[in-house]
Design a protein around this nucleic acid. Structure first.
Lengths: 139, 139
DNA sequence: GTGCTTGCAAAGAATTTGCATAATT
DNA sequence: AATTATGCAAATTCTTTGCAAGCAC
């Protein structure tokens, strides 16, 4: 599982990116690895009183840019991060509890690819989000 | 065109929503109607020194909730508004100049509908964004 | 040792809220 | 007259930055 390897491979990941493996970064990575779903940067900050806010935000950005984390936007635009399982995926976002789930569809991917060819300009990527009331929130 | 009617029909739109047709709201609507593409709330605020910031933000939110405006999120999560031409559409967002264009595909819509049925929970809506470098920014 | 990192606090950016005043119906 | 709306400033929220002191390599 990627969740395990994040914690175990932080040092390697960081060095490959030309960054140093430090204590605070390992602490952040260890906490992220323990997270199931999506989380906000602030929530990580609150759970790590021993690490400065700036370091938490910087590390999360670092890992997001490295592709270790992926970012989803809630309907109001606020970002949530989650471990990127590296297969390309989209998001199912519950408007009620703000839970973010992953979603994949090869058929959708194929169509998006086709459409990309028809779009003027150079398509860099796409993002598909479904906003919903999740089964839990439906009671 | 919807662009024309927004300016002309603000009073009607507001009253249908149970709100009052006021001078500041008309000023905001008139400016919005003159906009071609997407804009930020702040940019509208800056262009209307005679109207308070709070009123600008409140009016934009009012019109967005009424479906007169639609909101797109830039890759960093910051919102951009544009006149909603009421046909369901998606967005082509230039990562370089931040221009937002509309995009429609009946084939995409059909597939998203099908997928919605397979998704657990009650799907409320979806959002598809293509991030790209627009023809202008490609030089 | 040299240079990247950290943590703190301050700075920012964007948006919302409280409240007395003003305008609409 | 009864409310709703406005505008200003202050408050919020989330995130970034400056910089001296501290680590990693």
């Amino acid at each position: 599982m990627v969740t395990d390897s994040l914690d175990a491979r932080v040092d390697e990941i960081l060095k490959n990116l030309g960054h140093r493996a430090t204590g605070p970064r390992r602490k952040v990575a260890r906490l992220l690895a323990s997270k199931r779903g999506a989380f906000s940067a602030e929530s990580i900050n609150e759970e790590l009183p021993g690490v400065g806010r700036a370091t938490v935000y910087r590390t999360i950005r670092l890992l997001a840019e490295a592709g270790v984390l992926c970012r989803a936007l809630l309907p109001d635009g606020s970002p949530r991060y989650s471990i990127d399982h590296s297969w390309h995926h989209h998001h199912l976002i519950c408007s009620s509890c703000e839970t973010v789930e992953e979603f994949r569809s090869s058929e959708l991917e194929r169509l998006l690819c086709e459409l990309s060819d028809e779009i003027p300009g150079r398509v860099l990527g796409h993002q598909v989000d479904f906003y919903l009331t999740c089964p839990d929130c439906l009671q």
